[in-house]
Simulated assay, not measured.
Amino acid sequence: MTELSEQDQRLCDEAPAAYDDLRALFINCTLKPSPEPSHTQALADRSIAIMRANGVAVETVRAVDHHLAPGVYPDMTEHRADRDDWPGIFEQVVAADILVLLTPIWLGEKSSVATRVVERLYGNSGHLNDAGQSAYYGRTGGVIVTGNEDGAKHCAMNLLYSLQHLGYVIPPQADAAWLGEAGPGPSYADEGSGGPQNDFTNRNTTFMTWNLLHTARWLKDAGGFPVHGNQRPLWDAGCRFDAPNPEHR
C-alpha cells in the first residue's frame, strides 16, 4: 500500500468536505496480465492512497485480466461473442462517482486495451439515467499515463475527450503522467527511475485527485448534472425546453 507523503497527509487532514460517501473506479489498461507488476498502477496507487485516506471506496480493474469482446454493444454475447466480461465491469462503472482510466504509452498512443475499454464504454452510451440523460452524467473522470517516450499529453487529450463526450464532467488538471528518458530505460516503478520522487508528477497526481474529489462532491450534492436542455426523451419528442410538451407524436 502506497504511503502518503507528509504534504499529502496534511491536505487530507485539512480536507474541506467529507468524501466518504463517494466511490471511485480505476481501470488499468496495461498490456500486462496479473500478477505482473504494472508501472501505470504504481503511479495510480498514489492517487488511490489519497482517496482512501478520505474514506472513498476505491475499486481497481485490470482490463486485460478480463475477456472484453470487441464491439460497441452493451453485451457482445448477444452479437455472436462466446464470452463477454464487460457487462460486469459496466456495473462497477455506473456505481462509481469517479472513473480514472490508466494507460501506458505505445508508439505515442494509448494502449490497445485502453481503446477497447473506450469502445465498450461507448457501447453503453445509449443507457439513460432517471432524468433522461446519458447514464454517465453526474460523474467525473480523469486519466493517468506512464511511459518511456513522448505522448502523455496526446494520450490524455484523447481519453479525456472520450470521457467528456460520453457525459463525464472533466475537472481542471484531470490528468497526471510520468515519462522516463526517451528510448529503453527504467520505467516508473523500477529502481533508480526517479519516478516516485518526481515532484512534477507527484504534484499533478495530487492536483488531479483533489480536483476529481471536489467535482464529485459538487455533483453528488447537486443531485447530478442539471437537466435543462440535455434530456434525450424530450428532444426525441420534439419538445422545446422553454415550453410545455407538444402534442404527442
Rank of each mutant, 00 (worst) to 15 (best):
D221T: 11
N204C: 11
T201A: 14
T201G: 04
K220A: 09
N230M: 09
G224H: 01
N230K: 12
I170Y: 07
W218G: 01
G185C: 04
T201C: 10
A177N: 07
N202H: 07
A177C: 07
T201N: 03
D190Y: 02
Q197L: 13
R217K: 13
G224V: 01
G229K: 02
A182C: 00
T215A: 12
P186S: 10
N204Q: 14
G194D: 07
M208F: 07
P171K: 10
F225N: 00
A216I: 04
T206H: 10
W218S: 09
H228G: 00
G229F: 01
L212M: 09
N230C: 12
P186A: 11
G192K: 02
N230G: 01
T201W: 03
V227Q: 12
P196L: 03
P172A: 09
R203E: 15
Y188S: 03
G195F: 08
P196E: 04
S187F: 14
T206Q: 15
P226D: 05
L213K: 04
S193D: 04
A216F: 02
D221G: 00
F200P: 00
W210L: 06
G223H: 02
G185K: 08
E181K: 14
D221M: 06
A222N: 08
F225K: 02
L179K: 15
N198I: 08
F207Q: 13
N211S: 06
Q173F: 11
W178R: 04
G185Q: 09
G183S: 02
D199I: 04
S187G: 05
L213N: 03
G229M: 01
A177Q: 02
N202S: 11
S193A: 06
V227P: 00
G224D: 01
Q197I: 05
R203I: 12
E181G: 14
W178C: 07
G224T: 01
W218N: 08
S193V: 04
A189I: 07
A182Y: 06
N230Y: 03
G192I: 10
D221W: 00
G192D: 08
T215V: 06
Y168N: 05
A177M: 03
G194I: 10
N211Q: 13
N198S: 11
Y188F: 15
R217T: 05
L219R: 02
A177G: 01
P196F: 07
R203P: 00
T209S: 14
W178V: 09
D190K: 01
W218E: 12
R217G: 01
F225A: 04
G183D: 02
G223K: 05
F200A: 15
Q173A: 13
D221F: 00
W218R: 12
N202P: 09
S187H: 12
S193N: 05
P186T: 10
